[in-house]
Write a protein that binds this DNA or RNA. Structure first.
Lengths: 330, 330
DNA sequence: CTGTTAGCGCTTTCAT
DNA sequence: ATGAAAGCGCTAACAG
């Protein structure tokens, strides 16, 4: 910066002002400083900037599972919005491991990130509270915060679960199963709750059983499907609501006998998220679509607003999922 | 840090040493400093550390398309290795847009990242050279650097292309098509070159046509499939090698007539990358598997080695792809 | 509108 | 083994 100042024949303070408050500087200075910057290939040192000004140009995003295309779309939405503000995103995958969650929270705190987006696994309110005491804004993603202590952006999973179950009931199915878990994962619990509500409030005499998985992954979907196939045909559900599309994809793979799929004739299937691969599956999978991109974008926007004004009251933004019916649900 | 020093009854220099060079400090000091840190909830300020010491604890990763699960696995591999070193990863999606590539390169330079991993789109040797002049190590990912100026970690796409085509030929197919592009994307060109070599060096009298796409995406695969279906059946290829699995997935969706797929009977299909969704497709897709995780891990490891020792000679690490034959290639 | 300067929190000599 | 102090590159406050 000193070199740039010398080259442009101004002081470092002026160079700083050109970079940060161009309207307080004469057009002439701006031009000269700019050309000096170009000539010398100067790149400002964000560490020093950060140290002095206390503002950082990174935000952290802690996600449960980066292998889920849905999450990737959310991150992508946040990234697009961030790049518009000259901000880069630090990503951390937790694999639903609280220890990794802790680690990234620490790492991001060290980095003095401008804020943290997180789709949390367990209950880390206390941990996040500490972050907030350090003035680091936090926005929960893909999950509500009932106490309203943090801003949150998510889809209404309960409604989504209800709509999915109602769809299956409308197809004439009566022996429903929810395949998902673990249930300390909020999203899974909410989707099940919604489905349960729909079944209990229908007068069709339908039932809902729960097949628990240890994660919302393709592998767990396959395993759950095997368990279902191990039963006598009469004992199997006639419709399955999968916790998300990965589970649905896994289920689809194992719900077949001797090469012939049971879906949708014997078993109707619906997933959640509407990832792009759901439509390309062996049987195109029905799903509850979430506006992934918009979720990420909105979350980042709120985060930046809160970073700019710490007095803002936390707000919950809820998107409504949308039923996308395909072949798998008949 | 001053607070910690006071609490522990030592100087800030000692606190710093406890954190960075524990072996130069007495066990007693370590213990007291540690407990002071815990008590006060001290988190070190990475900006200051960076400013003074010049070492950063972030690396940047610039990827072509974060929607590709293959790339995500690579990033994941890098992230796992990074977290072992207390390093976080800044991600930037370029969407094959040179302007975004530039933007992220600048942003990462400002951040004084420890190094940059990049799966580059066009020819940005010059741009990367500038980074290197600033002592920022660069490792190319998923792409070789023939001039050997940068370290690179990738799969041998030419061999992969050759193996894919040979597999199709071995299935008795003779009218092969390569669906992919654009060809200023190195990986696409290499895969085609490999396939071409295999066709030309087989004495089966096979042919290879090229169906060009503007990206290696599901959408482009669908569009290319439509163009193929628009032809008279006799004019269609009897085997398609897709530039990657996304294209293959797209092709699979459009290669059907009135609900009945032509794959694999009329048209054999093979993709590249072996993303997890390839196996779950309508017809399980054959693919050339790349060790995604290992690529990311290796790239990061090399990056850190080069960051630690600038005199290291660039090295190219090549993984061999592996044929995974499934139903789609008969 | 521009220049001067203190100091952000840390690491790293250099004495002790 | 520990402490004192310089200074990394920048921003912001203030003087001119």
């Amino acid at each position: 910066m000193r070199d740039v100042a010398r080259e442009a024949g101004v002081s470092v303070g002026t160079v700083s002002n050109v970079l940060n408050k161009p309207d307080e500087v004469s057009a002439d200075s701006i031009a000269r400083v700019q050309s000096a910057i170009d000539k010398l290939g100067y790149i400002r040192n964000d560490a020093a900037r950060r140290l002095r000004a206390g503002v950082s140009s990174t935000v952290g995003f802690i996600v449960l599972d980066g292998r889920n295309p849905f999450i990737n779309e959310v991150v992508r939405g946040a990234e697009d919005e961030a790049s518009r503000h000259g901000i880069a995103i630090l990503v951390g995958n937790t694999d639903e491991d609280p220890a990794r969650e802790e680690m990234y929270l620490d790492l991001f705190a060290e980095q003095q990130v401008r804020g943290v987006l997180i789709s949390p696994y367990g209950d880390i309110t206390r941990r996040l509270q500490r972050l907030r005491e350090r003035e680091v804004p936090v926005v929960l993603v893909d999950r509500m915060n009932p106490e309203g202590r943090f801003s949150a952006v998510a889809t209404d999973s309960v409604s989504g679960g209800r709509m999915a179950a109602e769809h299956l009931l409308a197809q004439g199915r009566r022996r429903l199963a929810f395949v998902g878990g673990p249930f300390d994962m909020r999203q899974a619990r909410d989707r099940l709750d919604g489905a349960r509500w729909a079944v209990e409030n229908s007068d069709a005499g339908a039932t809902l059983e729960v097949v628990t998985t240890t994660a919302l992954s393709v592998e767990e979907g396959i395993a759950a499907g095997r368990r279902i196939m191990d039963r006598q045909p009469a004992q199997r559900p006639d419709a399955v609501f999968a916790g998300n599309d990965l589970v649905a994809l896994g289920l689809l793979q194992s719900l077949s006998t001797g090469g012939s799929l049971l879906v949708p004739q014997q078993i109707a299937l619906i997933g959640f998220d509407d990832i792009s691969f759901a439509a390309a599956a062996a049987v195109p999978i029905s799903s509850m679509r979430q506006p992934a991109r918009a979720i990420g974008q909105t979350a980042l926007r709120i985060l930046l607003e809160e970073a700019a004004d710490a007095t803002l009251i936390p707000r919950q933004t809820v998107f409504r999922p949308e039923l996308v019916a395909r072949a798998s649900s008949g």
